[in-house]
């Protein structure tokens, strides 16, 4: 797999929000890859920078936010510095995006057919009748019954789950290499969530699409993702295969997160919780941003920022796993 070029490769990405009181670092040097057909889950608390990462990849960070450094490569081609018009051509065609709320993602005044055909024809040379045929096939593919009849409905005539299927069809309509799904199930009923996740997974497998799945729902990640990145305060705390990270998290924050998942087998009275809350962007502590909440904190964490360290298949940004620091701790 290391020989094959990843679909998405993010290198030391930094995103800032310029405010009157200086630039706030929303994303502070993150790196990850997503291979063809792979699902990368991105988890973290609200404000950890998950959604901003997704927006940065698709080139839709709203001002005053901007990419301050690093590289984003799509199948080896650098896309973070493209002119707006070229980036627009990539959006929808090579990178699709699904947003959180299917109820508000569709323009209420246009028929589903109009929105699908418009998107298909923006990116291809298909005639409108060919585009319509393709749209019907897509709707069938995402599991909408009687698509040739339903295609001329307006968004408000669909249920929430059906609308999210339409949104997925729209994101997939020109077969992008990468899909960024930003909390795609958060706004849906629990019973519908599983269907949507299964659909995303199936489509990703069938088309070989790489998926970046942003969510704060560990259950969704555990079910869907191949690998998972745990984000904290604009950095990746830990990244690795999903089974390993869930069952054997290394980073203290990841341990805390996994401890907060209720389990049916172990009848614990109380769920583990991480004391405190994530720092605001304007008040990120020096050193490791997690140090004020970390139960294993030691002096080095308060001054020196931990760099990602490879630990078997994980990559973890924590001084605990740095051999030199463990040794110095032992000496002290």
């Amino acid at each position: 797999m290391s020989v094959v070029q990843p679909v998405l490769s993010v290198r030391d990405l930094r995103v800032e929000f310029v405010t009157r009181r200086g630039a706030l670092k929303a994303i502070d040097g993150i790196s990850f890859d997503i291979a063809k057909g792979e699902v990368l889950g991105v988890v973290g608390e609200s404000g950890a920078g998950k959604s901003v990462t997704g927006s940065a990849v698709i080139g839709l960070i709203d001002p005053p936010g901007r990419i301050a450094g690093g590289e984003i490569l799509l199948s080896g081609m650098r896309i973070d510095n493209l002119p707006p018009e070229e980036m627009r051509r990539i959006r929808g065609k090579r990178i699709g995006m699904i947003f959180q709320d299917p109820l508000t993602s569709l323009n209420p005044l246009y028929r589903v057919s109009e929105q699908l055909v418009e998107t298909i024809r923006t990116h291809t040379n298909l005639s409108s009748s060919a585009a319509r045929k393709r749209a019907i096939d897509l709707l069938a593919d995402v599991g909408i019954p009687a698509p040739e009849r339903r295609i001329d409905s307006y968004p408000h005539e669909f249920s929430g789950g059906m609308r999210q299927r339409v949104v997925i069809a729209l994101a997939l309509c020109v077969e992008p290499e990468l899909i960024i799904a930003d909390e795609p199930t958060t706004a849906l009923d629990v019973s519908v969530q599983a269907q949507i996740i299964a659909l995303l997974k199936r489509l990703g497998r069938e088309h070989g699409t790489a998926i970046m799945l942003v969510t704060h729902d560990m259950g969704v990640i555990a079910e869907t993702a191949d690998r998972v990145a745990v984000m904290y305060a604009g950095r990746i705390a830990e990244i690795g295969p999903v089974r390993d990270v869930v069952q054997n998290p290394l980073h203290p924050y990841a341990k805390g997160l996994m401890g907060a998942i209720p389990s049916l087998e172990s009848a614990a009275d109380r769920l583990v919780q991480i004391p405190g809350s994530m720092p605001r962007l304007s008040a990120i502590p020096p050193g490791c941003p997690f140090n004020p909440r970390c139960p294993y904190v030691f002096d080095r964490c308060r001054v020196e920022r931990p760099e990602p360290i490879q630990q078997s298949e994980h990559r973890v940004a924590c001084h605990l796993y740095d051999q030199s620091s463990v040794r110095s701790e032992a000496v002290a």
Partner: peptide
């Protein structure tokens, strides 16, 4: 959101 989504679809 639907304007954001329209942008994400690469419409002009």
């Amino acid at each position: 959101d639907y304007i954001k989504f329209a942008r994400a679809r690469g419409l002009t």
